[in-house]
Design a protein around this nucleic acid. Structure first.
Length: 270
DNA sequence: GTTGAGCGTT
């Protein structure tokens, strides 16, 4: 049986879910099945994939029939080299329904009373917990459709476990990061101040009148930006840009701009 | 051809 997750979860009544992390993006359930099945009876293996690309996210869920077997697999497969990468096997903390697993049920095997040295090759992966946003940024990247969908479900468990951890982790760093990513697109697609549409009622104590006398800003020219000497109005331009290419507007990538430069009708009117 | 913290399928 190599068909896992074909019809959803078969039966999670008496099964224990194990979370396998650090697996390659190419690792499939079939590859993990023989590995985990050797240490116990694997009921089902599920590997979440991306909604857009459909690629594996890098972790899989292995369901065991018995906890003792699962525990053994965790201890045995945890830190194993798979596909040239060290995988991390641990009991799942959350359920498929965003619900917590029975307390002590699955975790009861975790804190084994035995003198088992848990300190394995567990690399310091726990860099910054608040970085969970990072993975989100690339997850949503540019997908407004699934935004609400994922956001909704993420918020569900977020408030359950991540809430207490976010005491004051309002690191503004994430802003810098996101900005860096979107900076390119933002700058390219929105040469104007279209971002204002987000906060129209934004009262700026310090107007764009930057106190920079150094800057050679022709005063006579920027005196009336709204008025254009030519028939080129900002509105007109905006409309044109939107109609031409709202997604990616290249400064010189305008092949259509010079299409059929015929001042007069070559239809032979004259 | 891709990144590498983390928790799930209709």
């Amino acid at each position: 049986m190599s068909h896992f997750g074909r019809s959803g979860p078969p039966d999670i009544s008496d099964t224990y879910s194990l979370l396998v992390l650090n697996i390659t993006f190419r690792t499939t359930a079939d590859d993990l099945f023989p590995l985990f099945d050797k240490y116990g009876k694997v009921v089902d293996i599920f590997i979440p994939k991306d909604r857009r690309t459909g690629e594996s996210r890098g972790f899989a869920f292995v369901r065991y029939k018995y906890a003792d077997e699962a525990s053994k697999a965790v201890d045995r497969l945890d830190g194993r080299m798979v596909d040239g990468r060290e995988i991390t096997v641990q009991f799942a903390k959350y359920g498929p329904n965003a619900e917590r697993i029975h307390k002590g049920r699955i975790i009861e095997t975790s804190p084994k009373p035995n003198s088992r040295h848990r300190s394995r090759s567990r690399s310091p992966r726990r860099r910054h917990r608040d970085d969970y946003r990072d993975r989100d940024y690339r997850r949503r990247s540019r997908s407004r459709s699934y935004d609400r969908y994922e956001r909704d479900r993420y918020r569900g468990r977020d408030r359950d476990n991540r809430r207490r951890s976010r005491s004051h982790s309002a690191s503004p760093d994430y802003k810098s990061r996101r900005r860096g990513r979107y900076d390119d697109e933002r700058h390219s697609r929105s040469p104007s101040r279209s971002v204002d549409s987000r906060s129209p009622a934004r009262h700026s104590p310090s107007p764009r009148r930057s106190p920079s006398p150094r800057k050679s800003v022709s005063p006579r020219r920027s005196a009336s930006p709204r008025k254009s000497p030519r028939g080129e109005s900002p509105e007109n331009r905006s409309r044109d840009g939107r109609s031409a290419s709202p997604r990616s507007v290249s400064p010189r990538g305008r092949p259509d701009a010079s299409r059929s430069p015929s001042p007069r009708n070559s239809n032979g009117d004259d």
